[in-house]
Amino acid sequence: MTTQVPGDSLVSLTAVNKHYGQLHVLKDINLNVRKGEVVVVIGPSGSGKSTLCRAINRLETIEDGTISIDGKVLPSEGKELAQLRADVGMVFQSFNLFAHKTILENVTLGPIKVKGVAKTTADKDAMALLERVGVGHQAPKLPAQLSGGQQQRVAIARALAMKPKVMLFDEPTSALDPEMINEVLDVMVQLAKEGMTMIVVTHEMGFARKAADRVVFMADGQIVEDATPEEFFTNPKSDRAKDFLSKLLTH
């Protein structure tokens, strides 16, 4: 069911497989994401969508197949891998802000240590990013002093500070209280509008409808559907997707 997009794909997965022991968690995954495209990955829990997202910057290893980013095959170790990761922004479910660093330091650490940007420049850029996600006034605080929604927005700023080619979001709102979900989604919608290439694993169907160019539906480690949001939500083809959507709509 996967639509192979020819041409300038930024993220490209070809025949990717992964097992956790007996569990075949990624089954022959093929996926191409073009520059500027926003792809939302949805599916029931345990379907492998988080693993897929984490495999793209090799936080999860894969057994076979290839993953390439902007034409370069993801290396397995070392300096080349670190360099490639610097081009791939990642936002985690549990924020993972550096607990011993201030909000500002969280955002400047990557540019200063990985890219060798001067501290004054990094500070200035970081403040601009923090203002953009609406937490500029929190800069001198430690992560634990911020609400979940604020922490997640800082995490987005931290990833953006590396000027990534693509942003990965691994269930960015799943650990948030309901009233904080929108403040994070607003930032993500804004980012999508500005043309950032994004792969978003989420349960927020509203976001998928609003901001996605494509919806990828995963179940049991496979990509079952790959369609536009309109097509997917109004006219899902597989029984698996129909079943999933019907469960969402009943509540």
């Binding site: 910057n57 936080l59 070392g78 300096k79 670190a82 360099q83 990761r85 610097a86 081009d87 791939v88 922004g89 990642m90 985690f92 993972n96 802000l97 550096f98 650490l109 990557g110 240590k113 990985v114 890219k115 995490a155 931290r158 990833a159 590396m162």
Partner: peptide, 9 residues
């Protein structure tokens, strides 16, 4: 993981 994902060695 967060540190690795911003490109740290």
């Amino acid at each position: 993981e967060a540190a690795r994902s911003i490109g740290m060695n």
